[in-house]
């Protein structure tokens, strides 16, 4: 007797609530697709301000440079804040596991008005990142104010 089986599986995340304030006016909304994309109007929006690069690309986003990260090079996280503010950075792997978390006090490196650049090495306890895509959330007062993703190859 021929006996065969077929199975279909799927999985998804449950969104608790969209708390995000999407930073910048990036034309590629996919950057903001990390969670639910609804934008709340709140004072936090004024913390992160968009800028226009000399290439004409509107990119107020949180960004990692270089991206992809080739590991041998120096990599940094960059974003613009319009005011000093305590911020928190969280990095998740492709399975949504938290791999790094750091709270930066107001006025500290990465929490001052203007453009902030933080070495990724400050966020991780080591340099031995496994290959894959990582997702970064920038939070203030527990709310997401920016997000990006980068690849380690």
């Amino acid at each position: 007797m021929v006996h065969a089986q077929m199975s279909v599986a799927s999985a998804s995340f449950t969104s608790i609530q969209s708390k995000g304030v999407i930073m910048g006016e990036g034309k590629r909304l996919q950057l903001a697709k990390f969670g639910v994309m609804a934008v709340n109007v709140s004072p936090l929006r004024s913390i992160v301000t968009p800028v226009v690069s000399n290439t004409g690309v509107v990119n107020g986003e949180l960004l990692v440079y270089p991206n992809p990260v080739m590991v041998f090079s120096e990599s940094e996280l960059g974003y613009r804040l319009s005011a000093n503010a305590e911020v928190e950075l969280k990095i998740y792997n492709m399975r949504a596991n938290l791999v790094a978390k750091r709270t930066i006090p107001r006025g500290g490196l990465g929490a001052v008005a203007g453009y902030n650049r933080i070495p990724l090495s400050l966020l991780m306890a080591h340099n031995n990142w496994s290959g894959g895509v990582y997702f970064v959330l920038l939070l203030a007062n527990g709310k997401v104010i920016g997000r990006t993703k980068f690849t380690v190859m």
Binding site: A4, Q5, M6, S7, V8, A9, S10, F13, G35, R95
Partner: peptide, 13 residues
Amino acid sequence: GSASLFSASFMNE
């Protein structure tokens, strides 16, 4: 015999 399919989407990403 058996066949299986799996699909998952995390974080809309």
